[in-house]
Design a protein around this nucleic acid. Structure first.
Length: 605
DNA sequence: TTACCTTTGAAGGTA
DNA sequence: TACCTTCAAAGGTAA
């Protein structure tokens, strides 16, 4: 495969992941080289001036035309040529990347690098286009300017001017190549070193796209004939998608901080290459930070994907194969054009996932950490811990996730204006737990209680140490929970009687006293309410609630702890740090706590 | 193979 | 307006 310049090209690729900011030493070296180059350039200029002076006495343009070839003082020309050769040599041996950075121009897709000029000395259109697009501040001469260079100036002068210009261009080229390398740094390293919630350097073409490491060496970018980065067609240079399709498909998205260490991403990444998940949107920093959250630096193999309506794969579109839903990898727009029956069209509609809410975002970020800290593997137990931690977060911390989620929804709504959460209804199999009037609530409640206790026991054991030594004061109810769960029912008598329940959800805090199936809100809440009438697990029926862990009130002390979490799997870091807010709430609860804490039986194994 | 478990939040529907 | 229902992620577990 043709490469840029032998080893240099290899270096480009090989160092993709190793690029880092040049150290000062390199900078100095680079400066010295630049000084040398500038000195050469000054020589060229001075010679040019001399020539101009000499030419002033010459009136024969034709003579001047031949002068470079015949005049004895063609030294400057030779020097220029030598410099050009030297520049090329530097380019080949990698000295290329030691030129100064041009932070404002992170792009580097040098077109026709080896021959940016046409045979007549003018800048090739592609090069000109590139320069004009990528170096807007560089007054790249257009055709008019180049016409000047081809004006009836004495040929020698023309050549010298061209040489000089070419030299300058080479310098800029070197600089931009250097910039290409340096630009990778913020892109790649941000993913790992920037706080997840920090508004990231955006996906704007200034930061993200050009620096994507392998893009400039990918076959899609390299000129297949020369192996040199080709000039991207203007149509490829979308302000938001400066990367050519598939150019970076094999690399992990560098800005995904939210992703857990599980090698998966929130939205699937198209194997053909990473594209902006929300292509239709003009990216602002906040949005880009959100988008960045969708991709993981740890992602491994991109799963199959669907195409967005724009034809660009969108991570929120789940492959029906994955979702085990009616397949369809065709964009809705294509469906609209197809004469297939409406039902089939619907079946073929790609599954657009709901945007993640704040807690989901938090969960994705923290799950891996929790899993690492605790040997728990069951997601249900992990999620319980995460739920507790979520409530332990400060409001500021939670606000960050709420803001992210808000942006997520905003982006989602902009990308899929007609999408409704209702669209996904029924795409999952109906849950058994759906409470039918004629169903047997008791059976269900028993089952739910079992599993509830089972998981909650696990959680408890992996959660607060305060609980482990008998006091629940360290697990107060959190107003944030109440705020975050507006659907949560008001505290029942049992909750009020329970000492310092962490959440307003009955089962949230009292899992080791008695279990209440389902959630406080939603379908599960209805389930629990229906079951509560048939089981003694209802709060009011057991005022003392001194039931050891592992037993269920509804089961008449029948041990139902099925999968206890061993203490050996616990880690102190799993404990939810009591926030000042919790402490304040704790005091509040303690103040109004009428029930002696001694009533709370310390769970024993 | 598939549903369930668990968590919170959002959205849409219904009374 | 309040409540209910469903889904979003995750992976082990059970049927």
């Amino acid at each position: 495969m043709p490469q840029l310049n032998g080893g240099g090209g290899d270096d480009l690729g090989a160092n993709d992941e190793m690029i880092s900011f040049k150290d000062e030493g390199e900078q100095e070296e680079k400066i010295s080289e630049n000084v040398s180059a500038e000195r050469d350039l000054d020589d060229v200029k001075s010679s040019l001036v001399n020539e101009s002076e000499n030419n002033s006495s010459s009136s024969d343009s034709e003579q001047a035309e031949r002068r470079p070839q015949t005049r004895p003082d063609s030294e400057s020309y030779e020097k220029t040529r030598d410099y050009f050769s030297e520049a090329l040599r530097r380019q080949q041996d990698g000295g290329f990347f030691k030129s100064p950075h041009y932070p404002g121009y992170p792009f580097l897709m040098i077109p026709d690098l080896t021959n940016p000029y046409l045979s007549n000395g003018s800048l090739s259109p592609s090069a000109r286009t590139y320069l004009q697009m990528k170096w807007p501040l560089l007054d790249v001469p257009g055709s008019a300017g180049l016409k000047d260079s081809r004006s009836p100036t004495p040929g020698h002068l023309v050549r010298c001017v061209l040489s000089c210009f070419f030299t300058v261009h080479l310098l800029l080229t070197f600089s931009s190549l250097c910039l290409l390398q340096s630009n990778k740094v913020p892109v790649v390293q941000h993913a790992h070193h920037v706080h997840p919630l920090t508004p990231l350097i955006t996906y704007s073409n200034e930061h993200f796209s050009p620096g994507t490491p392998p893009s400039h060496l990918s076959p899609e970018i390299l000129d297949p004939k020369t192996g040199i980065p080709r000039t991207p067609h203007p149509s490829e240079l979308s302000p938001y998608y400066p990367l050519s399709p598939g150019a970076v498909g094999s690399i992990a998205h560098p800005l995904s901080w939210l992703m857990p260490q599980q090698g998966q991403h929130m939205y699937s990444i198209p194997p053909g290459g990473f594209r902006h998940p929300y292509p239709a949107l003009a990216m602002n920093p906040s949005m880009s930070s959100l988008v960045s959250s969708r991709f993981s630096p740890h992602m491994v193999t991109p799963p199959p994907h669907s195409l967005h309506q724009t034809g660009i794969p969108h991570p929120a579109i789940v492959s029906p194969a994955i979702k085990q839903e009616p397949s369809g990898d065709i964009s809705p727009s294509m469906h609209a054009k197809s004469p297939v029956p409406a039902k089939k069209e619907e079946d073929k509609k790609p599954h657009i996932k709901k945007p993640l809410n704040a807690f989901m975002l938090y969960m994705k970020e923290m799950r891996a950490k929790v899993v690492a800290e605790c040997t728990l593997k069951e997601s249900a137990a992990i999620n319980q811990i995460l739920g507790r931690r979520w409530h332990s977060l400060s409001r500021e911390e939670q606000a960050k996730y709420y803001e992210l989620a808000r942006k997520e929804r905003q982006l989602h709504s902009q990308l899929y204006p007609g999408w409704s959460a209702r669209d996904n209804y029924g795409k999952r199999k109906k849950r058994k737990r759906e409470n039918k009037p004629d169903s047997k609530p008791e059976d269900f409640s028993i089952r739910s209680k079992k599993q509830c206790v089972q998981y909650l026991t696990s959680e408890k054991m992996c959660d607060s140490p305060a609980s482990s030594h008998g006091s629940m004061l360290d697990s107060p109810a959190t107003p944030s929970a109440a705020l975050a769960s507006p659907a949560a029912p008001a505290a029942t008598h049992s909750e009020q009687a329970q000492p310092l329940s962490l959440t307003t959800k009955p089962e949230g805090r009292m899992q080791h006293h008695f279990s209440i199936p389902g959630k406080a809100s939603g379908s599960t809440s209805s389930s629990s309410s229906s079951s509560s009438s048939s089981t003694p697990s209802s709060s009011s029926s057991q005022p003392t609630m001194s039931i050891p862990v592992g037993t269920s009130g509804s089961q008449s002390n029948t041990p139902i702890l099925t999968r206890p979490i061993p203490f050996t799997s616990l880690h102190p870091s799993m404990l939810s740090p009591p926030s000042p807010f919790h402490q304040a709430l704790h005091s509040h609860h303690a103040l109004f706590q009428s029930q002696p804490l001694s009533l709370v039986t310390k769970p024993t194994e």
